[in-house]
Amino acid sequence: MTDTLAIVRADPPRAAAAALLVIALATIAGFFFFQYVLGYPPCPLCLEQRIPYYFSAPLAALLWLGAGYGAARKVLMLGFLAIAAAMLWDAGLAAYHAGVEWKFWAGPTDCSGPINAIGSTGDLMKSLQSIRVVRCDEAAWRLFGISLPGYNVLVSLVMVAVAAWGAKAVYARADEK
């Protein structure tokens, strides 16, 4: 524990980038676990919420490397702010999705409305057998009353805070010079 605190104090931007990378990779592993191991297929909104993690994980790895090898302050600052913006957007999208699950507002018609595009009557049975609609307005899993999008709000906001801390550390480092 003491070694971890020493690393955080010695190089806060690098520690922030490492924390962002670990959180993003753990979240990616988590949603793949729910999808492929537990068998909860994602809805369209769930798939859209994954995009910021796919963006943030490699960017955090690059920030970690850049902070360790003396990348330009502006590059590091922009990287942390980009992750913060992406995860803030994701927190909003996840909150919207959680609200759709709680029926606070209507969701997108492609995953929470009626199924209208079945096709011609001749192909009706074939169409019905092949339809696999994962609804956005039904929570597939909950823990303590919070669904996966609800937890995604929390994880996204933690990542926003860590990215803001990394950006602040980069900014403070420039003031020291």
Rank of each mutant, 00 (worst) to 15 (best):
F33P: 02
E138D: 08
M87T: 01
C136K: 01
L63D: 02
R142N: 05
G30I: 06
K74L: 14
S127L: 04
V134Y: 02
L124E: 15
I23H: 03
P41M: 09
C43L: 03
Y54K: 12
S147I: 07
V162A: 04
A163N: 03
L124G: 04
A17I: 08
I131W: 02
L154Y: 08
L45A: 12
C43E: 04
W165Q: 02
G166Q: 03
W105L: 07
L148M: 08
M1I: 14
R132I: 01
F34L: 15
W105I: 12
Y53T: 04
L65S: 15
G145W: 06
G107A: 03
V8P: 00
F55M: 13
G145L: 07
M87R: 01
A172Q: 10
L93T: 05
L143F: 07
F33V: 14
N116H: 11
C46R: 01
W141H: 09
A117I: 08
G119I: 09
V158F: 08
W89L: 12
A95Q: 15
F34V: 14
D11R: 14
V22H: 05
A71Q: 02
V22N: 04
L59T: 06
R73P: 05
R9C: 08
A19G: 08
K126V: 15
V22S: 10
C111Y: 01
I28F: 07
S156R: 09
S120L: 06
A117N: 10
I146E: 08
S112W: 00
P44K: 01
R14C: 09
L157I: 07
V155E: 06
A26D: 08
D11M: 13
V134W: 01
A82W: 01
P41N: 12
R142M: 08
K177T: 09
R14K: 14
P108E: 09
E101Q: 15
I28D: 02
I23M: 13
A10R: 15
F32W: 15
T27A: 13
W165F: 10
S112T: 09
A85M: 13
K103Y: 02
G145K: 04
T4S: 06
G68R: 12
P13L: 03
A140Y: 00
L76P: 02
I28Q: 03
Q129A: 13
Y53M: 13
A169E: 00
A167K: 06
M77H: 15
P44N: 06
L21S: 15
A98H: 10
G122N: 14
A29R: 11
G145F: 06
L124F: 11
A94R: 01
D175I: 10
K103E: 07
A106D: 12
S147R: 05
R50T: 14
F80N: 02
L38K: 13
L47N: 11
R142A: 07
Y96G: 03
A61D: 04
L5A: 13
L5P: 00
